[in-house]
């Protein structure tokens, strides 16, 4: 492995590990659930992407072959991370709305209600006349 590749791999691995650690530290440190969603879904996924790119260059340097399956993992994670974050936010809004969980009195406060007469679409569509809504049936 040449020196340039080695330095690049080291930098990418350290950057990725730092992002993964910061994302998990955000999960411990931030005060409310909605804020705690930010760290893992953004920083950790980005850090893992950096680790995967480092792995591509590492195996190119060691074995002399370009591999793409790491990029497949990165692509899959970058597609799925926002979807899971959206679902988790929906779960939290739903639990707060049905009264199963009391939002603590933090600086950010409780999640705001949407404008208009509707509500967040967690269990049903936001309003009764939403197109293709199960609330109408």
């Amino acid at each position: 492995m040449t020196m340039v590749v080695e330095i690049m791999v080291c930098a990418l691995v350290l950057l990725g590990a730092a992002f993964v650690l910061i994302g998990s530290w955000a999960l411990v440190r931030l005060p409310s659930t909605m804020e705690r969603l930010h760290g893992p879904t953004k920083a950790t996924t980005l850090g893992l992407g950096s680790l995967l790119v480092a792995s591509v260059f590492y195996f190119q340097g060691r074995l002399g072959v370009w591999t793409a399956h790491e990029l497949l993992i990165a692509l899959f994670l970058f597609i799925t991370a926002p979807i899971s974050a959206n679902m988790i936010a929906k779960v939290h809004l739903h639990r707060v709305r049905i009264g199963a969980f009391e939002e603590p009195d933090t600086k950010a406060g409780a999640p705001p209600r949407p404008p208009g007469e509707g509500d967040w679409a967690t269990f049903e569509a936001p309003t009764r006349n939403t197109q293709a809504s199960t609330a109408n049936t």
Binding site: G23, L27, T41, H92
Partner: peptide, 13 residues
């Protein structure tokens, strides 16, 4: 925890 959402986030992470 304390919320259920926190636990799901923790498992996902």
């Amino acid at each position: 925890g304390p919320a259920l959402g926190d636990r799901i986030v923790a498992l996902d992470t």
